[in-house]
Design a protein around this nucleic acid. Structure first.
Lengths: 324, 324
DNA sequence: ATGAAAGCGCTAACAT
DNA sequence: ATGTTAGCGCTTTCAT
């Protein structure tokens, strides 16, 4: 920066001001400074600038899993909103196998982002509480006590799915639920509630997040004497794993069994897949989370904001009345 | 840090040394320092540490597109290698619509990463040359003159695909090629070469990177009188778009037309999709790129290293002999 | 509108 | 093995 200042014949401080087009720099000198800087190929050192300035324009982002497109959708929304307010995004990536939340979050703490938007946190509420104060969090698609959140009504989403199946005439509906992590119990609960309302007994099987986990887990269920007529899974990945398992047995969807997923990722509308699923509007969630993150960075002390979005049912060919 | 030093009754410098477990800190005092730091919930400020230290342990990563799983695979490899050497990764994400390469790369320059691993760069060779000196680059899946690269033999990969189709008896094979960007001409060339070797006339159509782009573009081709018997696309996304288009016309794969993709992303082995494709071993590419990035950071001046991996053909049900 | 000087929280010699 | 002292490249009062 001082090189630029020297070349432009001004003080370093003025170069700094010019680059942030702060109030109080004459247009002529600003143009001159920017021109010489461009000529020299100068890019300001963000590391130094972030150290020197109290106010920080960097938002942290945690994404659980790059292999699940729903996180890419959320990221698109975050980026859109961040761009509008000129914020930079610093990314940290976790893993569905777990164990990476803490390292990822810690790396964001060390990077001194002033607030981070987290999608797909796997830590428990109490483990997360330890970050309170040190790392303002805006949780996406999960409510975490004490933090901001932009969530989706999972109880409703699951009810939508189950009611769709009931209306089709299904009675024996199994739910492949996510691991019972804090904040991810809504789909499980919505399923159970809708089943009970219909006078049916819930049948929940806990399953990991990956396609392969569902593939293996669901095999015995498909081979059993009283195979369910429908399976409702906690995400699309596991629904695809169910499809794998169904087809590997020579069975067909929806003729032999109905499958319903959750997330409306792009693989669900592939020809021949046509998976009925729930759309939680991930781009909107991400966008709103970034907006809230910006508000939070300006006002660290106010009460946590929690917004809940309404998911929608997307009916496709993978769901049909049970064969009698 | 000085708070921790005071609490532990030592100097700030010793705390610094303890945290980097540098040579020359007694075990007892290091344990004591780490313990008090943990008690206080202290995380070192990476921003300050990176400013103060000349040597940098941060690697930049550019990924073109979070919606294409091949980049997630590459990232897995990078992370694995980075972890082994204790490097932190700073991510910047581009977009298949283009125009985001430069902002993303510039953000990495401002973040002062000492070398960045870039997968899916869309800028031209000459535009990239402008970063020479300012941003050491390790290009993944593309060779960029003057920079390190871990590439895949695209000419071979495309030849593999075409020869597979020829051996099946196809003569009328259309190639949906990527935009003719520097560094991404290999698949196009491998296709053309294999066709000419077989005495056939290449038929190349340039197509964007997305599924929807292929869906729209390929419609007229499918409706035309001399519909090809096989379509070979430059990536899986566009192959899926072709499937969309084929099915929307009531045609079937491979009965009415054979489709072959490129990348072996996970959607290709979905039941009913079963796309024949080329695997470029993205995890290995990413891992090796990160290893080279580490070498480069230790030795900025040596000649660029270029390594080329060999792709493999994955045959599935989407390719079959043409119906006569 | 512009410049001078102090300092952000660390690391890196150099002492001891 | 541990402490002292300068910076790293910016931003930010405070002057002018």
């Amino acid at each position: 920066m001082s090189d630029v200042a020297r070349a432009a014949g001004v003080s370093p401080a003025l170069v700094s001001l010019a680059f942030r087009d702060a109030y109080g720099v004459s247009k002529s000198s600003r143009d001159h400074i920017l021109a010489t800087a461009a000529k020299m190929g100068y890019q300001p050192n963000r590391v130094a600038s972030r150290l020197a300035s109290k106010t920080d324009d960097t938002l942290g982002v945690f994404l659980l899993d790059l292999h699940n497109e729903v996180f890419a959708d959320m990221f698109d929304g975050m980026r859109e909103a961040a761009q509008l307010t000129g914020r930079e995004l610093v990314l940290a990536v976790g893993s569905v196998s777990g164990g990476l939340d803490r390292p990822a979050l810690d790396s964001l703490v060390r990077a001194r982002v002033d607030v981070t938007i987290a999608a797909g946190l796997l830590l428990s509420d109490s483990e997360l509480a330890a970050y309170s104060g040190r790392l303002p969090l805006v949780s996406v698609a999960r409510i975490v006590p004490g933090f901001d959140a932009v969530a989706s009504d999972n109880v409703l989403g699951a009810s939508l799915a189950v009611e769709h199946l009931l209306s089709l005439g299904h009675r024996h509906i199994v739910h492949l639920a996510s691991p019972p992590t804090d904040g991810y119990l809504g789909r499980r609960e919505g399923y159970a509630r809708a089943m009970k309302n219909a006078g049916l007994t819930p049948h929940v099987i806990t399953c990991g997040y990956s396609r392969s986990a569902a593939f293996e887990l669901v095999g015995p269920l498909l081979d059993s004497a009283d195979r369910p007529t429908a399976i409702f899974t906690h995400n699309d990945q596991t629904a695809l794993g169910v499809l794998d398992s169904v087809h590997s047995r020579g069975l067909r969807v929806p003729k032999d069994i109905t499958v319903v997923g959750y997330d409306n990722t792009s693989a669900t509308n592939l020809p021949g897949i046509d998976l009925t699923t729930i759309d939680l509007h991930p781009v909107d969630l991400g966008r709103r989370a970034a907006e809230i993150a910006v508000l939070r960075s300006k006002d660290p002390a106010s009460e946590p904001m929690v917004e809940v979005f309404t998911p929608s049912l997307v009916v496709r060919a993978s769901s049909a009345p049970p064969q009698l």
